[in-house]
């Protein structure tokens, strides 16, 4: 499964939920939005290799 985050693509073969992806990438859930096939989903959402997953960073600085 390909997950895009911060302009990069990451490949995962054995994840079942968004939460597992976030844990692998060491992302704090409150700092991102998760889009599954273009729709906002919660971190416990189940995902398959057919889904298009995008993690959108929401934290900005300055």
């Amino acid at each position: 499964m390909i997950v895009s985050y911060n302009g990069k693509n990451f490949e995962f073969g054995d994840v079942k939920t968004v939460k597992e992806v976030l844990e692998r990438l060491k992302i704090i859930p409150t700092t991102v939005l998760i889009l599954k096939n273009g729709k906002i989903v919660e971190e416990n959402e189940r995902i398959t290799h057919l889904d298009n997953i995008e993690i959108v960073k929401v934290v900005s600085g300055g």
Binding site: V59, S60, G61, G62
Partner: peptide, 18 residues
């Protein structure tokens, strides 16, 4: 992200607060 804010102290504060 603005290229100049990537190293801003506020980013690390935000991580802790998040």
């Amino acid at each position: 992200e603005c290229p100049y804010s990537k190293t801003a102290t506020s980013i690390s504060y935000k991580e802790v607060l998040s």
